[in-house]
Structure formats: structure tokens, C-alpha cells
Design a protein around this nucleic acid. Sequence first.
RNA 1: GGACGGGUGGCCGAGCGGUUAAUGGCAACAGGCUGUAAACCUGUCGCUCCUUGGAGCUACGGAGGUUCGAAUCCUCCCCCGUCCA
Length: 403
Amino acid sequence: MLAKFCRRLLGSWHCFDSILPYPVESYLPAISFEVVAECPQTRARAGLLHTAHGTIETPVFMPVGTQATVKGLTQRDLAEDLGVKVLLANTYHLYLRPGHELIRQMGGLHRFMSWPNAILTDSGGFQVFSLSGLRKITDHGVVFQSHLDGDTHTFTPQSTVDVQLAFGSDICMVLDECPEYPVSHEYARESMHRTVRWAQEAFAHYRSLSAPHNALFPIVQGSMFSDLRKECAAALLDLDADGYAIGGLSVGEPRPLSLEMVEATEDILPRQRPRYAMGVGMPAELPEYVARGIDMMDCVLPSRNARNGYLFTSEGRVIIKHARYKDDARPLDPQCQCYTCSNYSRSYLRHLFQSGEILYAVLATRHNIRRYLDIMREIRHAIVSNQFPEYLRTVRMASVDAG
RNA sequence: GGACGGGUGGCCGAGCGGUUAAUGGCAACAGGCUGUAAACCUGUCGCUCCUUGGAGCUACGGAGGUUCGAAUCCUCCCCCGUCCA
């Protein structure tokens, strides 16, 4: 609230620039978050996340555009047609190709990819730890081999901040270690401490720079151990970050465990800051995370599954290659207002899929992203209109019915 | 009429005496995908049984034959190409 107010006055405050060591903006948080409604029964809340590239209504789903593109969609589709306010991009991939210096030279990631709204960049920790090939953890960071050409590179907590600042990301993520599942308590603790240490180093470096428009989020780790999750969150609190992420989920653990891990830290993370659950989830899981205090989510499922023939509808999943859709003249989702559902039949979509046509991926991705965004809009509306518990019940019953 | 070449499971196409119900590819049918090395990956794919694992049956143009054993070798026949009359 304060930050928003200050921003409004920024114009007149620039007269202080001459007497202050840094521009006025650098004395304000890069982003600000205000809670506009809270569910009285759950931890769900609706908010507004203000960034240098627009205000984002939360809870929000952020489509994944790893290589500075959501595969199959144009930026116009995303911004104008689908109303996407924030996209994910990936530090690991963009650092390797085309390189952060090139992106900086091209005017930053927003200009490079012609994206007017906010961008959150993942640090690349997930890739470094999930991609095969050599990788070695040192005191300073992680040495790894490029999956593109085998070249050796090093990521440090400091360097990944620098790379993301070169991109001009609105929200940067600290370098973290995302352990696989399952892993021993001992390893998880050691790994979590490393993630905390890296976060502290990343923040120390970040605070030494002038980054008035770029927020930095630390990431809670601790594998599937509640005690480690709590310890990690508590340690990260000292950083007084603009937002907090929960990582290390959806790495193969049973579904209920992911939610438990979010619950473990819901009382520890500050209520006045946005919380971001990384890499989740299936449609029915989205309100579950929101009910546990999550404001931001991202996931490749809607985009990747779209291309692979798995479509999300208000009536459940549609595996478009199934023979029963061969002569199905109905729209994919009769409840959906998207371009795909407004214009094309399941029969046609199936034909495009079977033929390997590019248009299939375009139409399918457009729908699936729209479906996720619609779910988030429903969730937000339910919270604001004080009907979230009822909404959650309905979703739970529907997913039980769906099997 | 003659000379070559060829007929293999829905299609294309390997195999050229036993390890072949028969490599591949396509098609078909199903499963998977959760901070994207993914327009990708995996499985099934002659018929009939039983619980897995198997059991039986029918199959490489047709009919005979050689052989312990044939999609593979031989004979005749039927088709299809190319070339020569």
C-alpha cells in the first residue's frame, strides 16, 4: 500500500535524486503486494502484486515460457487474448542460449521477446539439478555441463542474480538446490542448508547493487520433511524478501505430501508477502494450494500436455487422440470461451493432432492456458465474494467423481 | 510368345533352411507428462483360451515336393512390374 502510494508520488520525488546516492526508485521495493480479500476459513487470499510491468491479480497462474516463448503462442495471444499478466522464463536456458549479455544488449528480456507485462525468471537451479550430465557442487556454487554442447559452466548465487538482472526480470529467483525424491533426511538437511546459504549470498550481492525494478525471491527447500521446511522458512525470513517461493515440489512424491509441505510453512512465511509454489499443479490442485496460502503458481502441464494431446476441460480431461472424438462435432469444452472452443470441433482438433499439424499445438495450448487462467479467475472470484470454502468443496467433489 | 525382377502380417518393407508369430517404419489403439533437453516418451498391435506366465491354432500368392525342420530350396500354376518380340 505504502509502496503504491509512494510510486504515485515518484514523479515529484525525483527532485531528491541529486542529494541521494541512488535513484529514488531504489529506496522502494521492486514489487509490492497488497491483500484485498481473505477467506475466513482457509488461508486463501486475493491480492494485487504491483510490478514495474503492471499489476497482477493474485492468486495467479504463470504460464511457462522457458525459452522466452510459451511454445505455440504469440505474445499477443498471451497478453491480449488470454490476459496473461506475468510469464515465467528460464535463466539456465536463456543464459546458455542466446546468452544474457546478448539479451541485455537487445534491451532486456521484455524488449527482446516483445513482452509488455511482468516476467519472473527461474534461477536455473532446477535445470542444473535435473538435467543429466556432469555437475559438481562446490562452496561457491555449482559447476555443470551444458546440455547443448557439453561446455562447462558455473552458476553461483551471485552470478545467477547478475544474469537475471541482465534480463531485467521483474522477479528473480535465487539459485537453489532442488533435491530429487526420495532423499534421506540427512541429505535433505545438508542440501537445505546449502540453499539457505546460497540465498543469503544471493541477497547480499543483490542488496549491494541498485536493482530498483527487480525483486528477488528466496526458495524454501527441505525435501519432504516438515521440520526442515520450517527451519528453512524461518532462516529465510531474515532476508526480508519481497516474496517467498516454495520449491522442491512435484518431484515424484505422493500428491498429498506436496500439500503437507506447503502447510508446514504457512504460519512461518509472512502474510504480507506473496508466496509462490513452484512447478504446480493439476487443475484440481490449484485451489488446494491457494487454500494453503499460495498466491503464485507456475506449471508446464497446460502447455506441454496440450502439445501431447492432453486437454483440460471444465468436464475433466480430454485425450484428443481417443477414437471416441473422431466424429465428435462438439467444441472441446462447451463452457469455455476461448478461441479454440469457440471455433473448432473435437473432431477437427483430433484430425490436426493425428496429422501432426502445427495448428494443433497452437489451438490446444491456447485452450489449456485459458483453462488454467479461468480456474484462477474462479478461485479469485470465490475468495473476493467470500465463497471460497464452498468453491473448494465443489472442486473436491468433482475430482472425486472424476476418479 | 520370350528374358529378367517380384508377390511377407492394415500399408510400406527386411529376412533368404532351425534362435521367426516373423527386424524396421507408417497407420491403428492405449498409457505417461507437474520451477519444459518434450509438436515428446512408453506400451499393445494374427486368432482363441487360462491368473502372471504360458498353452493351442492359423500364417510369408496357390498346390505339391525335398528335409528331422521351409517365408527361405525344388516343380507346376496364378498374379504384378520392366524390357525384347
